[in-house]
């Protein structure tokens, strides 16, 4: 079972995790990750996240399918927001479940690595001084090579 949601609305990570966990028959391990907007340099007013409707959902579904082909998961959940998010807001969450923890941890990291560089989202920082697009990092692209 896999669930992918791309939405502007906020979500309750705790409630989502509980609901996900309860649906995982046979899972001995559930791993989750929540990404939060952080004010790296001070002065961040908001992060504006643009995406490519249609491709976003299909790209994430492809990444989730790949994770299920590599690890024996009972389920996976990806929620990713778009639109204007203020510091402290939850941007996204990933949850994975498997019989054992190694598969759940590895699959969650795999999903995160691929979501960063292969899901069509773009972040723009809005600060008091102006706005700027967040550049992709070489290390994020390099992170894919370990899989």
């Amino acid at each position: 079972m896999a669930e992918v949601r791309v939405q502007a609305d906020s979500f309750d990570a705790g409630a989502e995790l509980n609901r996900f966990s309860e649906a995982q028959a046979g899972a001995g391990a559930v791993v989750s990750f929540t990404g939060v907007v952080r004010d790296v340099s001070g002065g961040l007013e908001a992060m504006e996240i643009e995406h490519y409707p249609g491709m976003t959902e299909s790209a994430i579904a492809t990444i989730v399918d790949e994770s299920k082909a590599r690890w024996p998961l009972t389920g996976a959940l990806v929620i990713h927001r778009h639109g204007r998010l203020e510091p402290g807001a939850q941007i996204m969450m990933v949850a994975t479940a498997s019989a054992h923890r190694v598969a759940a941890f590895e699959a969650a990291e795999f999903l995160m690595d691929y979501l960063k560089s292969r899901a069509p989202f773009w972040k723009k920082e809005v600060t008091r001084e102006g706005t700027g697009w967040v550049a992709a990092k070489d290390e994020d692209e390099a992170a894919l090579t370990r899989w």
Binding site: L115, S117, W122, K123, A135, A136, E141
Partner: peptide, 10 residues
Amino acid sequence: IAFFPPMTGG
């Protein structure tokens, strides 16, 4: 056809 900079999801 879509053109865009490298993606910054997550």
